[in-house]
Design a protein around this nucleic acid. Structure first.
Ligand SMILES: [Zn+2]
Ligand SMILES: [Zn+2]
Ligand SMILES: [Zn+2]
Ligand SMILES: [Zn+2]
Lengths: 148, 148
DNA sequence: GATTTATTGATACTTGATATCAATTATGAT
DNA sequence: ATCATAATTGATATCAAGTATCAATAAATC
């Protein structure tokens, strides 16, 4: 992705907060910049460790705002803290590497079509769904994953 | 399901522990009986509250054993403690009522066929998947849900 | 019933996350 | 630029879910 500077993306997250009527502060900027600069899913605690100059409360609050605004996906991890990733695609699902925990995104129209068709079989009114594919990622398969 | 007494089902959970070479104790019996008697998904803390005579550690340990043995499903709840339900169906997915949190189960062969066909599109080796349908359940739709 | 080994549960602790609230900072008006 | 106002911050306390410890207890086997 080379269209525009790294600022171009950053503005998306700022805009998400702006649209909620939230002020632009240096603490929030630090959080957003950190999220943008690493192009990977993360936990709240990872952000806290990476941003010791920002208070935990602010880190957690900012994440909540972004999830709330739809700018971040919150992904439940069965035996650990939830992970967050930038919501670049409107509606999508995630792959999770069972070895290293790496998160990927995918969209699949057939999946969505089937989910929509599920209404007849389900008792009640469908309001949404969630789906994760567990994989062994390429890096882990090829043994080139150092864990970093 | 009227085949057999309520004991008949209970034996399934006992067998799951037995097969793991675990002893049959009164504390474990209390936990298994509680799980069987209420035919609903539950959290670990709910069990602890319902079984004050059993230590928390034992409750948590027993649940872990059962999940381990495949006798219980552990269902991640995005903003709360995971819920557990008896795994009566081999492979299946869950419905979650967004209003009251009620958990249901379903199987759908088309869903499974599509999931299997997803391999081509996904980077890496698929080892499993998870899926939840969010609904408003009938009780909540009809307004007969008192929250109990 | 004695021996061996698994289990129990009170307690302390860990982790993830939120509540409090005085001090600070952003924003808008003058 | 200064001020007034309201939002934000972050140290701290607290909460919640869950695990580790380990002496006391209870199963299973002989
Ligand atoms: Zn991996
Ligand atoms: Zn979807
Ligand atoms: Zn409901
Ligand atoms: Zn499935």
């Amino acid at each position: 992705m080379t269209s525009g500077t790294s600022n171009t993306i950053e503005i998306d997250l700022f805009t998400a907060l702006e649209d909620k009527g939230l002020r632009k502060t240096s603490a929030r900027s630090a959080v957003l910049t950190r999220i943008e600069s690493a192009n990977d899913a993360f936990t709240a605690e990872q952000l806290c460790r990476d941003l010791p100059e920002v208070g935990r409360a602010t880190v957690y609050r900012t994440i909540r705002h972004l999830v709330d605004a739809g700018a971040l996906c919150k992904l439940p991890i069965l035996d650990g803290a939830p992970m967050y990733s930038i919501a670049r695609i409107e509606h999508h699902h995630h792959t999770i590497c069972s070895k290293c925990g790496a998160i990927g995104e995918f969209r699949h129209s057939t999946v969505e079509r089937v989910m929509r068709s599920l209404g007849k079989e389900i008792d009640g009114e469908i309001v949404g769904h969630r789906m994760e594919i567990f994989i062994i990622c390429k890096r882990c398969l090829s043994g080139t994953n150092d864990g970093g």
